[in-house]
Computed example of a mutant assay.
Amino acid sequence: MTKPVKVDGPPVQLTPEAIATRVHGLMLVKCVITREGQMRDCRVIKGLEPMNETVVKALEASRYTPVMFQGKPV
């Protein structure tokens, strides 16, 4: 199996609220990468409140290489 690699998409940017409240830390977000490399069904497992929506939107706008198993995308 090959790991997915980011091909295209916007960088995650801090929101004004996150900057004002000096939010920092680790987020855990679960997404599905389709065979075409699209991100979908993203949901926050462990979030940072002013950043949750922004991070999900950035991930869903990104494209990745699909996971390959025995030469086929899965």
Rank of each mutant, 00 (worst) to 15 (best):
T15C: 03
L26Q: 14
V55L: 05
M1D: 05
L26S: 14
P50G: 11
G71A: 07
G37T: 08
L26P: 00
M27S: 06
L14S: 06
A61P: 04
G47V: 04
P73N: 10
V5N: 07
T15G: 02
I19G: 05
I33Q: 01
E17S: 15
G9Q: 06
V12P: 02
V7G: 07
P11Q: 12
E17F: 09
I45C: 05
V7K: 09
P4L: 08
V5S: 10
K6E: 11
Q38G: 02
Y64C: 01
P10S: 09
V44D: 09
H24E: 15
R22E: 14
V5K: 08
E36N: 10
G9I: 02
D8K: 07
K46Y: 14
R43D: 12
I33S: 04
R43A: 09
T21S: 13
V5P: 02
M1K: 05
M27Y: 08
V12C: 05
V29G: 01
E36M: 10
V5I: 14
V7H: 06
A18P: 01
V56P: 02
D41S: 10
G9P: 00
E60F: 08
V7M: 11
Q13I: 12
Q38W: 05
T65H: 06
F69N: 05
T34N: 11
M68W: 00
L28R: 13
I33C: 03
S62G: 09
V56G: 06
E60M: 11
C31K: 01
T65R: 00
E17W: 04
E60C: 09
T21H: 06
F69C: 03
I45T: 09
P66W: 04
T54Y: 01
R63Y: 15
V44M: 15
G25C: 11
R43S: 14
E36P: 00
M27F: 10
P11D: 15
A18S: 14
M1G: 06
P4N: 04
P73M: 09
V32C: 03
N52D: 15
K6M: 13
A18E: 04
G37N: 06
D41T: 03
L14Q: 06
K72W: 03
R63W: 09
A61S: 15
P4S: 04
K72R: 15
L48Q: 12
K46R: 13
P4I: 05
K3E: 11
K72Q: 15
V74K: 01
T54L: 00
L48D: 09
K46F: 12
G47L: 03
